[in-house]
Design a binder for these strands. Structure first.
Lengths: 262, 262
DNA sequence: CGTCTTTTTGACCATTTTCAATCAGTGTGG
DNA sequence: CCACACTGATTGAAAATGGTCAAAAAGACG
């Protein structure tokens, strides 16, 4: 099992530029991505009003901790994070990766406290909304409220998909699947450059996503490399045969509709 | 791996009484359970208006199928169901059990189609809401809209918890955990009778929840029985030492706040 | 009683883990 | 520039966990 992340908080894998500290919602680069649904002008103005500011978390920092009550809900603007749960005897299950456009910390607003932790994998720039103002959103903009539900339901769908992968597939398929899954999501979020992707996870992170030991993860990765459908070194994944990768991982491309973004 | 449930749809394990076919919301037995949050009179009237009717699914019937677009969202009033995903090579991962008070079919309303299937384990009596009227709920009652989000977020939290169990624990712990988890939820839903619980799942279902083979599930169950903390036969679970069961499964009782119910 | 489903068991095999090193890359200070 | 420390990746060997195949036993039901 993985070492507890809490104990080794500083990884140096900066990716975010950290340039502009405050972007107006209307200038949010996410809005240019057709994967996201468009705001009405009213909604845009409302969101601008609701946003408290931006924050940058350095790579390796914890953003939210299980059991914690956070005053804020975050929308990731830049960078990668992981959601994970620690189990009592030292294991860590990574539930999902969080990419730009993902909302984190909703559990804290809904239940009063987080039921999993979130950690920045690269530097993460995020947009803040106070949790106590979420109610305004529900009152004033049913459409945006529905978007929050959409995001929560999608999170559930992704975790379910990964759970079926972990529970029902042998190591090799699991691994191909997770690369296919992440690569696909990265494409939608426009993080890919052709068939290449800056990929900040370590093998240990993959192990903790798949419920495998580090050693077996490494060996399985070797087998996957041997199929020549992808390469991964020095923080960079290149997919040479996407179709093959999908087939190996039993991955089917989801039919994505325009997703919301808060 | 499990046989596909679709192929053997009829199980005879009726539990629901099937007596009254239409209950007024104000008389809904769920409202008497203090685990659920109270409706305001306005909300109650609104929900009554929104409800289209009730439906009973026989034990073994599919309620919703992955890929399907359902016109309805269901709230379970009575009975047990499972949410599951089939994987291409014949496996089935059960994501969660659905008990009275749980909302099913929300994915279909949010994404246009279900991303997992739902099947009745016992006879299931459910209350219906047309999906196209969900928008009215968001417009007219932000509080109820928030409840829908709550339910979606909770579903995610449960699947995450089970995923950490499947991904990080050996068979024995997984099994103790799943019994502890289900027993606890059943208690909250008032399905238990002291330390006893009518438990309609088969060993094969447990296997598919835990990501284990049938055979190994059976053997692990024997070990669990040997600890004398619980018994399970003829559809009835009796917990003799709850604390021990929790310890064996690394289960910690969640601090439940009053939950919503639609 | 006969049929069907579900549970249980045995024997054998495969996958995956653990333990223990080694190797490679990177940054640091002398 | 090189020695050193540190993190992450890789490998080998042994052990354990869990899976498959095949069959029998136990219940459930008409």
């Amino acid at each position: 099992m993985a070492a507890r992340v809490i104990e080794k908080p500083m990884r140096k894998r900066s990716v975010a530029d950290g340039a502009k500290q405050q972007t107006a919602c209307r200038d949010c680069p996410r809005l240019a991505n057709p994967s996201f649904r468009k705001f009405s002008p009213k909604e845009l103005a409302f969101m601008q009003k609701l946003k408290t500011g931006e924050v940058v978390h350095k790579a390796g920092e914890g953003i939210l901790l299980e059991g914690q009550k956070s005053e804020y809900v975050f929308t990731i603007l830049e960078g990668w994070a992981i959601r994970y749960k620690l189990v009592s005897d030292g294991g860590r299950q990574i539930l999902n990766v969080a990419l730009p456009g993902d909302l984190i910390g909703l559990q804290s607003s809904v239940f009063g406290e987080m039921q999993h932790s979130v950690e920045a994998i690269t530097d993460v720039r995020a947009c803040l909304m106070r949790r106590d103002r979420l109610f305004e959103l529900y009152s004033a903009h049913p459409g945006l409220a529905f978007d929050v539900t959409w995001l929560a339901a999608r999170e559930e769908a992704i975790v379910s998909e990964l759970m079926a992968n972990v529970g029902q597939q042998p190591a090799f398929v699991r691994m191909a699947f997770i690369f296919a899954h992440i690569f696909h999501r990265a494409q939608v979020s426009r993080l890919t450059n052709g068939n290449a992707l800056a990929f900040p996870l370590r093998q240990e992170d993959i192990a903790d996503m798949l419920g495998l030991s580090m050693v077996h993860t490494n060996r399985t990765l070797r087998k996957l490399r041997a199929t020549n459908c992808m390469t991964w070194n020095r923080g960079r994944v290149v997919v040479h045969d996407l179709e093959k990768l999908h087939a190996l991982g039993m991955f089917t491309v989801p039919t994505d509709t325009a997703r919301p973004f808060l």
